[in-house]
Design a protein around this nucleic acid. Sequence first.
DNA 1: ACTAAATATATTGTATACAATCAAATTGTT
DNA 2: AACAATTTGATTGTATACAATATATTTAGT
Lengths: 141, 141
Amino acid sequence: MTDLLKLDDQVCFPLYAASREITQLYNQFLVELDLTYPQYLVLLVLWEQQNQSVNQLGDKLLLDSGTLTPLLKRMESKDLVHRQRSAVDERVVEISLTYKGNQLKDKAEPIPTLVSKHLGLTVEEFETLKAITKKILHYRK
Amino acid sequence: MTDLLKLDDQVCFPLYAASREITQLYNQFLVELDLTYPQYLVLLVLWEQQNQSVNQLGDKLLLDSGTLTPLLKRMESKDLVHRQRSAVDERVVEISLTYKGNQLKDKAEPIPTLVSKHLGLTVEEFETLKAITKKILHYRK
DNA sequence: ACTAAATATATTGTATACAATCAAATTGTT
DNA sequence: AACAATTTGATTGTATACAATATATTTAGT
């Protein structure tokens, strides 16, 4: 039987390495926009819905406040987002896009296509990969 | 047509999130062995071949010295590995397993199976995921 | 109204990642 | 041999990740 502890037989390692690989690939394009991949993800979520709490962002990106708070502060210092305490509930911090943050959407538009081309996967492979990784995420709690 | 910038349509985000998810899952089991997931990966490689340079580890794990050097020093301080300059080439640092690092293999053996069960993917899904992520890694240069 | 529990974010501490730079050692060429 | 180019790790600086804890606020139960 195969050795359970052989690096080459594990699924988790290529997944882990491929994830880093793609992040680096994105970063190559994002550096022109002075963005990192996680910052770009925050913008994706905000472009879909202008105003969201830290909590809502964390739910969608599966990131906790220990990651998001400093990340959002860096984005605020780059004038990409506003951070403001909710008047209704003082515990909530509302994140909204600045003009600059909004404007970046056009420049970001071509990036997913560029990344896809670099990866060289077929359409079926993309769909399969998306389906399986989403299935993994559904088993969390 | 679909919005290219919708989070839910991107492949890269579920891959990124699933990778973090699996790392956390591994860490839940590895914390008993006082290991992190990247440290466990280093041990995987060393269990296959007792003695390797930092460079060889980096080639296999696709990590650079900026990550590996401090990681290996932490592992050295936990008495899991030895770090020693090569006598043949003084630039090379040879990493070898300590007795303790060797002994951990038995305790680590059941972990991949436990993780697999938690993920709840079929055998076909595992194989497909492995194949696609490995394909992604082959496009690096 | 009072107070315990729950919620939302922030902080702290540790551990990756990785780009960029540096330094030492080795190799290749003349 | 002399020396430029290459190789190998280490270092520095910045940016995630995330567990654990802390703090402020709100909600719920009596």
